[in-house]
Design a protein around this nucleic acid. Structure first.
Lengths: 87, 87
DNA sequence: TATTTATATATAAATATACGGATACTTAAT
DNA sequence: ATTAAGTATCCGTATATTTATATATAAATA
């Protein structure tokens, strides 16, 4: 088991949770801030926020502030490919 | 969050572990029985066996007995695509 | 039948993860 | 300065996962 394999399995682990998978799929279709994801998932805000952090520290999401909103987007090519391979 | 998304995230979860990712990658390159995977991973046999069961119950692996040996193979198209998308 | 080889299962301990609620932080508007 | 909106963090508890050890099963061989 090499380092590349570990790295890739970490991406899959981050995506391997229904909420997080849904978030990434949603972001690939253009949704942006936390509130819109909350509505779409009907989950309490802290829960959504927590999963966003997990995805961010896995290097899958990037974030940019826009006023008081945070705009998240998928910045990781591999994660994007993985989700797209499941279309 | 719909049922499809849950289903897909379960596949990713099963693959989101370094040992299991390594097993599936290995099986796509032709390795077969538990002993050969053990050697490749240098892990105790029960550990390998346990992860094989997890992959099997996730519907990712199929197994066939060949005498003494159990021959595992990747039977899930989506899992195959996911791993190949990370090549 | 007894033994060996290959693989699976059970249990328990350690660790990791999930979730809800309260709260803190940051920016914008008043 | 105060308030409101949007978001992040912390904490406690519940649950799940991982691993090792020990043991069990199943087929092959002696």
């Amino acid at each position: 088991m090499n380092h590349e394999q570990k790295r890739k399995s970490e991406i899959l682990k981050a995506l391997g949770h229904p909420i997080r998978y849904c978030i990434v799929e949603g972001l690939l279709s253009g949704e942006r801030n936390v509130a819109s994801l909350m509505d779409c998932l009907s989950l309490p805000q802290p829960t959504v926020s927590r999963h966003l952090q997990i995805l961010k520290s896995a290097g899958i999401l990037g974030v940019q502030r826009a006023g008081n909103e945070m705009h998240y987007s998928v910045i990781n090519t591999e994660a994007r490919k993985v989700v797209e391979s499941l279309r």
